[in-house]
Write a protein that binds this DNA or RNA. Structure first.
Length: 420
RNA sequence: GUGGGCGUAGCUCAGCUGGUAGAGCACUCGGUUGUGGUCCGAGAUGUCGCGGGUUCGAGCCCCGUCGCUCACCCCA
């Protein structure tokens, strides 16, 4: 029996895991700098939280959830998205009973039981933020700006931002009546009509040319916005322009989760395959109340770490030539190995990434491994060095070495590492 | 759930009209005394995805099965 990972999960192992870590940190940092605080959440929740929060008619809930019964007979589901779990936690712990808006971030794995393909996994990774308790359009712009900053910090350029507004419930109700009436007049197959009956907006997202053509003439939600929604959306755009964030308005944009209202947005990368959405989000003005909390408005996003990594690779913007290790000790002999272990332990506590060459290989072979493993500096520790207290600090990239007193080695290294 | 492509060493792949398996890279060791990146030499590594069938003989043909992958649907 040869074990392998369950179908469709994303796994990261060296050396790529390093890039994954870099991407995830890059996406999180702008949120932290904007004062958003960590919410460390469970990866499974009461199933009903999702059916109620995300919406039973969504594909995510109706056919993509990992649901099982726990030993107490409760129905449990691996989280397919982050927002409703985050709001549950905010409500449960009273985080919305402080100065508003409550601003939090989270990251981790999410789960959807789909057929995997490029950029789509059954276990994938997102970072997200939520800001609850303010309907200020400036907050909408900030949330979008944070997502944009995350992607930019990775060096990504070949992506674009699409925004629209889903308006308030009155706007949507009025639009829906006309949209349903329009859809009834066009020729569609049964499966598509079935989808439309669940959520008529979905047809705007159809990739087939004939359906696209038909939907060109369909009534657009933006034309039905109430005065408040129209004004709010216009103000969001002003802020985005002030922040020099480019966007295009896509009135046909569709999000797969039912809770969105008002401003919604999506970041789309140009070099990815079929799964080109690298992040998205929007307002969810009724969701807090729906989940049993105060009737507060909110907005948030989810950014795909896996897809952002694919995008960074496609654009060739990943940093390279990064040293894994600052220093490698190559001990020669038993006594030297004991010393090397002691020094390494001490150096690590001073923040120097230090390795020891194991396995009693010949110096020549140890040097070969050092070369391949990517240590920046190497120190050979033998009897002579232990006797006279002098070592050769060799820089691998240039091959040059300088003599350093062993007792000052850590200081010398710290200086050398800082100056580079 | 539906459709296409592909499964041969750790990786990338070759293997002619069926004659019982190879290359490059990577790995380990060596090229005599304590210093890598080039070069040279040696070595290890495969139930050719799995099961059945046809055949004197199957990596190659047939059937089944599993897996991977891309796309639809949907989304991060």
């Amino acid at each position: 029996m040869k074990f392998q990972a369950p179908k469709g999960v994303s796994e990261y192992f060296p050396p790529r895991s390093r890039a994954f870590e870099w991407v995830r940190n890059g996406l999180i940092t702008p949120a932290q700098r904007a004062g958003y605080q960590l919410l460390e959440l469970p990866v499974f929740e009461d199933t009903e939280l999702f059916t109620r929060g995300v919406g039973a008619s969504t594909d995510v809930v109706s056919k993509e959830m990992y649901t099982f019964e726990d030993r107490g007979g409760r129905s449990i589901t691996l989280r397919p998205e982050g927002t409703v779990g985050a709001l549950r936690s905010i409500i449960e712990h009273g985080l919305d009973r402080t100065t508003l808006p409550t601003k939090i971030w989270y990251s981790g794995p999410f789960f959807r039981a789909e057929r995997p393909q490029a950029g789509r996994y059954r276990q994938f990774h997102s970072v997200g933020i939520e800001a609850v308790g303010s309907d200020d359009p400036a907050l909408d712009a900030e949330v979008i700006a944070i997502a944009d900053a995350g992607f930019r910090s990775l060096g990504l350029k070949q992506f674009h931002l699409e925004i629209t507004s889903l308006g308030d419930s009155a706007s949507r109700a009025a639009h829906r009546i006309d949209l349903v009436a329009y859809i009834a007049t066009i020729a569609l197959d049964d499966a598509t009509r079935e989808r439309a009956s669940l959520n008529p907006l979905r047809l705007f997202d159809d990739k087939r040319d004939d359906v696209k053509a038909l939907m060109q003439k369909a009534p657009i939600l933006l034309d039905y916005l109430s005065d408040y929604s129209k004004e709010h959306f216009a103000t969001v755009q002003k802020y985005l322009s002030a922040l020099e964030i480019e966007f295009i308005i896509n009135p046909r944009m569709v999000r797969g989760l039912d809770y969105y209202t008002g401003t919604t947005f999506e970041f789309v990368h140009d070099l990815l395959g079929a799964q080109s959405g690298i992040g998205g989000g929007g307002r969810y003005d009724g969701l807090m109340a729906e989940l049993g909390g105060q009737d507060l408005t909110g907005i948030g996003f989810g950014l795909g770490v896996d897809r952002a990594l694919l995008a960074a690779e496609a654009e060739g913007v990943l940093p390279e030539g990064v040293f894994n290790t600052d220093l490698l000790f190559i001990p020669l002999g038993h006594d030297a190995k004991v010393k090397a272990m002691v020094f390494a332990h001490e150096f690590r506590s001073q923040g120097i990434t230090t390795e020891v060459a194991f396995g009693d290989r010949t110096l020549k072979n140890a040097m070969k491994s050092a070369d391949k493993s990517g240590s920046r500096f190497v120190v050979v520790l033998g009897d002579a060095e232990l006797d006279n207290g002098q070592v050769e600090l060799k820089e691998m990239s240039s091959g040059t070495a300088r003599s350093v007193t062993l007792s000052t080695l850590a200081d010398v290294l710290v200086k050398a590492l800082l100056s580079s």
